[in-house]
């Protein structure tokens, strides 16, 4: 498991490079309970990106989910995002088993080479590049204020813009 420090309000741009063709690979992210990850209109403290479902490039926003007016320091805090790999075997999402592991390299972008414990230890079952960005998109500005934009509403706004 790897822990990446991130400022609240920043986003992790996760770009998938190589994926094993033998089984579905999973990239899991976790933050502490008073922080949440926002992606695809879903906000949660822990998310799992499956290679057979998630796009090749995903932006994950890290923000605080506290609404207490007294907590004025949370927006400037640094939190740790725990990252670990998983896989799907026999229709079960697995992780933290066998000889699975992550090889960490690079700084910008961060390169994670993951192994699911099957076959040779080439750590090429899942390779991702992770960049830390500061999103300036309007949607993320809303999210920074604590408003979660529903995926359906955003899709409707997008289709209206197309028309």
């Amino acid at each position: 498991m790897y822990r990446q420090p991130v400022h609240l309000g920043q986003a992790l741009r996760i770009r998938r490079q190589t994926v094993s063709t033998e089984r579905n690979q999973i990239l899991n992210l976790l933050v502490e309970p008073d922080v949440e990850l926002v992606v695809n209109g879903i906000s949660a403290s822990a998310i799992a990106l499956h290679t057979d479902r998630a796009p090749a490039e995903v932006d994950v926003l890290v923000r605080s989910n506290t609404t207490d007016a007294n907590d004025v320091d949370a927006s400037n805090g640094v939190v740790e995002v725990a990252i670990w790999n998983g896989w799907t075997a026999d229709e079960i999402d697995q992780g933290w088993l066998g000889e699975a592991g992550i090889r960490v390299g690079g700084t910008d972008p961060l390169i994670l080479q993951c192994r699911d414990g099957f076959g040779t230890a080439d750590f090429a079952d899942l390779v991702v590049h992770i960049e830390i960005t500061t999103p300036e998109d309007d949607d993320y500005a809303e999210n920074r204020a604590g408003v979660t934009v529903a995926a359906g509403a955003r899709a409707a706004a997008g289709s209206d813009a197309e028309e």
Binding site: A48, R53, P55, E57
Partner: peptide, 27 residues
């Protein structure tokens, strides 16, 4: 177990086997 924010969606092709990625495959 963590939440899957893309549950219910499917990508037709695998990234490392096909270059014919579609707009629908991109986030």
């Amino acid at each position: 177990s963590p939440v899957d924010p893309f549950a219910g969606t499917e990508i037709a092709t695998s990234d490392n086997t096909s270059d014919d990625l579609d707009a629908g495959d991109i986030d």
